[in-house]
Amino acid sequence: MKNKVILVSSHQLGRGDEALGESILETFFTILKQKEELPVAVFCMNSGVLTMTEESLVSVHLKEMEDKGVKILACKTCADHFAVTEKLTVGKISGMDYFIELASKYEVLTIS
């Protein structure tokens, strides 16, 4: 995952059963945080910003990755839309301009 940015565009992984999708996304980050090479950043947009709140089990894994130096970022427009700006327990608010800057420097892996 070195030199990659993970784009999280949903609070679940895959389509179909929502609870299953949330569980699969949590498993993804549980395994990812244990890897020696971590991504440069995780950028959350659309309902992906919900993973940065205490309501999501993913937030615990994102916090551990943040503690290891991974930038955890939430799209400002998306956080405002879902009214979670004040509820984020990990990461910080960012803009699309910064995501575009990251995407121009690193490979983007999209989780949706």
Rank of each mutant, 00 (worst) to 15 (best):
T110I: 07
I93Y: 11
V70S: 00
T51E: 09
L7K: 02
T51Q: 08
E54G: 05
I100W: 12
E26D: 11
V84C: 12
E107N: 13
V8R: 00
L109Y: 12
S56I: 10
A74Q: 07
G21N: 06
L57K: 15
K87E: 14
L109T: 11
V40N: 03
G14R: 13
L25Y: 03
E22Y: 08
I72K: 06
I6R: 00
K105A: 11
T77A: 11
V108A: 08
S59M: 08
F28E: 13
L57D: 02
V8C: 05
T51N: 12
E22R: 14
M96A: 07
S112G: 10
Q12P: 07
V49K: 13
D97G: 11
C75T: 01
A83Y: 09
S112T: 03
L32S: 06
T51P: 05
L13T: 02
L88S: 06
V90A: 12
E64V: 04
V58G: 08
S23M: 13
D67T: 11
V58A: 08
T27H: 12
V5I: 12
P39S: 05
R15K: 06
K87N: 15
E64N: 10
N3F: 00
G48T: 08
F43I: 07
Q34L: 14
V60T: 10
M1R: 00
Q34W: 01
N46K: 11
E64S: 08
K92W: 10
C44P: 01
E101L: 05
A74H: 07
T110V: 12
E36Y: 06
I6D: 01
I72E: 05
K71D: 08
K92P: 01
K92E: 14
D97A: 15
V5M: 08
E18I: 15
A19I: 14
A41Y: 10
D80P: 03
T30S: 15
K4A: 01
G91W: 10
P39Y: 04
G69F: 02
F82T: 00
C75E: 03
D67R: 14
M65I: 02
C75D: 07
M96D: 00
A19P: 05
K35S: 15
G91R: 11
E86D: 14
Q34Y: 06
T30D: 14
